[in-house]
Design a binder for these strands. Structure first.
Length: 273
DNA sequence: GAACCCCTGGTT
DNA sequence: AACCAGGGGTTC
């Protein structure tokens, strides 16, 4: 589901209501979603207070008052919602954190792909440790160098490289297509043919696309809502994603749909080369 | 790298 | 009934 702009919006909408909350109880309704185990999670979390919310790539991190952390990954359909305890549990609720103030944090995930991991910062899970640079919070040279060094030692379409979380953190299927449209580059282009000037253009496009999407509080196509249950607005501003056979908003050509790097992919045959 | 898998639900 | 979906881990 959510990519960087959606997770960032969830983080922003949950920060003010979660900071300082004390965890009174934990309900695990889907054992396979949590690590190390529901027993250990419950033992570690009850009595803890939330001191900070962070985002790393597409992960939302809860920092607790004993320095432990909980990482949520929402995958395709996960939602994190702050609701009164009295609100009935919605179908497909995976995890509930109950606080001492009669509110709760619900993790709802119809496809059950989402994960919740408790860890200590000294021993982060592999998936977090391997993440590439944060596009919005890392200096340009570091991000561009991550893209170009990865490009030098791999083959295949440029879209696949941008989707690789080890190369750059936070881009998913929507924002790679939007980025490559803005950069004027076809998703199918081989990483080997991309010039230095084009990598610069891709980098700038990533920043523009992500910042605008955050301003619009994320893209709600089907499942995504923020921590208050409100949809985002960026679906109204998408240039190519989900616009198969519709006219390009820049040139009027018919937006093409194909499969690249295993994902449904949209591009303008005239604007992108 | 591509292909398949984990799941449920919406669309064609 | 078949195919598709804001993801990513594991297997060829």
């Amino acid at each position: 589901m959510p990519e960087l702009p959606e997770v960032e919006t969830i983080r922003r909408t949950l920060t003010s209501v979660l900071i300082g909350q004390e965890i009174q109880g934990v309900e695990v309704l889907l054992e396979k979603a949590v690590k190390p185990s529901s027993e250990q999670l419950i033992r570690a979390l009850v009595g803890r207070k939330i001191v900070e919310l962070r985002r790393r790539g597409k992960y939302l991190l809860l920092l607790l008052d004993d320095d432990s952390r909980v990482a949520f990954h929402l995958r395709m359909t996960g939602r994190l919602l702050f609701l009164p305890k009295l609100t009935p549990l919605e179908k497909h609720t995976t995890l509930v954190l109950n606080f001492t103030d009669d509110h709760s944090l619900r993790f709802v995930d119809p496809r059950k792909f989402g994960t919740v991991v408790l860890y200590w910062p000294s021993t982060p899970p592999e998936s977090l440790k391997k993440l590439g640079p944060e596009p919005l919070e890392t200096e340009k040279a570091v991000v561009v160098s991550s893209l170009t060094t990865a490009a030098a030692r791999r083959k295949g379409p440029v879209k696949g490289l941008l989707l690789d979380q080890r190369v750059i953190a936070g881009l998913g299927n929507i924002y790679t297509d939007e980025t490559l449209f803005l950069a004027g580059i076809r998703p199918t282009r081989s990483v080997r043919e991309i010039t230095a000037a084009e990598w610069e253009k891709i980098y700038q496009s990533i920043l523009t696309v992500l910042e605008l999407a955050i301003e619009h509080r994320g893209t709600s196509r089907r499942d995504y809502v923020d921590g208050r249950g409100e949809p985002g607005n960026h679906q109204c501003y998408l240039q190519v994603y989900d616009r198969k056979k519709k006219p390009c908003l820049v040139c009027g050509s018919e937006i093409q749909y194909t499969r690249v790097a295993g994902r449904g992919t949209y591009y303008c045959p005239a604007c992108q080369h």
